[in-house]
Lab assay of single mutants.
Amino acid sequence: THFTSQQLQELEATFQRNHYPDMSTREEIAVWTNLTEARVRVWFKNRRAKWR
């Protein structure tokens, strides 16, 4: 999946605040970024792996 810079900005900003967002937070992010909750969940999983 290719993310727009706007989507990445929103995802990264949320990641800085919370590395493990809950389901409702992921659903909110999905609405803001026009992505599915599953895409958001996978992005956070991959981002945490990169962060370690």
Rank of each mutant, 00 (worst) to 15 (best):
A38P: 10
T4R: 03
K45W: 09
S5F: 13
V42R: 15
I29R: 00
E12Q: 02
N46W: 15
W32T: 14
V31M: 12
T25M: 12
W43T: 00
A49F: 08
L8N: 06
R41W: 06
R26S: 01
L8A: 06
L11S: 01
T33E: 02
W43S: 00
A49E: 11
N18G: 05
A49K: 15
R39M: 14
T14H: 15
V40C: 04
I29F: 03
Q9A: 14
S5L: 14
I29G: 01
A30S: 05
W51R: 05
T36E: 06
N34L: 06
T25P: 01
L8G: 02
V31G: 10
T14P: 01
V42D: 11
V40Y: 00
H2L: 11
R39K: 15
Q6H: 11
L35C: 07
R17H: 08
E10G: 08
W43A: 00
T25I: 08
W51F: 09
T14L: 15
V42F: 10
W43H: 00
E37A: 07
R17G: 07
T36V: 03
K45I: 13
Q7T: 06
Q6V: 11
K45R: 12
V42P: 00
R48T: 03
W32Q: 15
L11N: 01
N46V: 15
T25R: 09
A38L: 14
V31D: 08
Q6N: 08
R41A: 13
T14F: 15
T33M: 14
E27I: 14
A30M: 03
V40A: 00
Y20K: 04
A13N: 09
L8I: 12
L11Y: 01
R41C: 07
T33H: 07
H19M: 14
E12T: 02
N34W: 04
R17K: 13
V40L: 04
R52L: 15
V40W: 01
V31R: 14
F44C: 03
T33G: 05
T36I: 04
H19L: 03
R52D: 09
N34V: 05
R17L: 12
D22S: 09
V42K: 15
R26P: 02
H2A: 10
H19Y: 05
Q9S: 11
E28A: 14
R26Q: 03
D22M: 04
A38F: 13
N18S: 05
V31T: 11
A13S: 11
Q6A: 13
Q9C: 10
N34A: 07
A38D: 10
P21I: 03
R17A: 09
E12K: 03
W32S: 15
K50M: 10
E27N: 11
D22V: 04
A30R: 02
H2N: 10
D22W: 04
H19F: 05
R26A: 03
F15M: 00
A13H: 09
R47C: 05
E27C: 11
Q16Y: 08
E27S: 11
Q6K: 13
Q6W: 15
P21L: 02
A13M: 12
V31S: 14
T36Y: 02
K45N: 06
K50V: 13
S24A: 14
H19E: 03
E10V: 15
K45C: 11
R52N: 11
A38C: 09
Q6T: 10
L8P: 00
F3Q: 02
R47T: 03
E12M: 02
N18A: 04
Y20D: 03
Q6D: 11
K50I: 14
E12R: 02
E37C: 05
M23K: 15
A49M: 08
E10P: 02
M23S: 08
L35T: 13
I29V: 07
T25E: 11
Q9D: 11
R39I: 15
W51S: 06
I29N: 00
V42G: 08
E12Y: 04
T33V: 12
N18L: 07
P21W: 05
K50Q: 14
I29H: 01
N46H: 13
Y20H: 06
R26L: 08
W32D: 08
N46M: 12
S5C: 14
R47F: 04
R17S: 09
K50A: 14
R26G: 02
E10H: 15
V42I: 14
A13V: 08
T4D: 05
V40K: 00
W32M: 15
L35D: 02
R39E: 15
Q16E: 10
V40S: 00
L35V: 07
Q9T: 11
M23V: 09
S5I: 12
